[in-house]
């Protein structure tokens, strides 16, 4: 049987058409590498031109409202940002964002143990500074900076957000 003329003119088998050649593959790798480089450049530009966010001041609690080893939930800087105010000693207050830095589950204070616990994936944070003690969280908890004015506590900004 004689081959049709078009097959002589275009001698490419369908299987070959779908095959990725080494040349195409190397170009694909190069393009991906360029993408990674551009991503790193974007992070660099973002970090250089980052404006420090302006945080509102918020009255969080009266000192007398929170007993030693007591906890108060508040929202800062927005209504969708739950935070924990913890009184670790008579004159020591700390506050952290409540969203775990792993997958945003709510962390629970274990004040007696000096830790904050994320029950979703067993992440543990230090109550003193929010650093990761154990588990999958990649970063410390964002710390709410507090100011004591007389008998009142104010949230003034967030560090590590």
């Amino acid at each position: 049987m004689r081959e049709p003329a078009w097959r002589t003119d275009f001698p490419v088998a369908t299987g070959d058409e779908r095959m990725v050649t080494r040349r195409q593959f190397s170009r694909f790798l190069l393009l991906t590498s360029l993408g990674m480089f551009v991503g790193n450049l974007w992070i660099l530009v973002r970090s250089r031109f980052r404006r420090s966010a302006a945080y509102p001041e918020l009255r969080v609690a009266r000192v007398a409202d929170v007993p030693v080893q007591g906890v108060k939930l508040f929202h800062y800087p927005g209504p969708d940002d739950p935070c924990l105010l913890i009184r670790t000693a008579e004159d020591t207050f700390v506050a952290y964002g409540q969203k775990c830095t792993h997958l945003s589950c709510a962390v629970l204070p274990k004040v007696a143990e000096g830790k904050l616990h994320c029950p979703c994936h067993e992440g543990w944070f230090a109550i003193d500074d929010g650093r990761v003690l154990q588990g999958p969280p990649p970063r410390p908890l964002p710390r709410v900076v507090l100011e004591r004015r007389g008998e009142e506590l104010f949230a003034v900004r967030i560090e590590g957000a």
Binding site: S33, L34, M36, F37, G39, N40, L41, I43, L44, R46, S47, R48
Partner: peptide, 12 residues
């Protein structure tokens, strides 16, 4: 960010 970008550029 800077060393990351430089290293990524070298790798590219």
């Amino acid at each position: 960010a800077l060393p990351g970008a430089v290293l990524s550029g070298l790798l590219f």
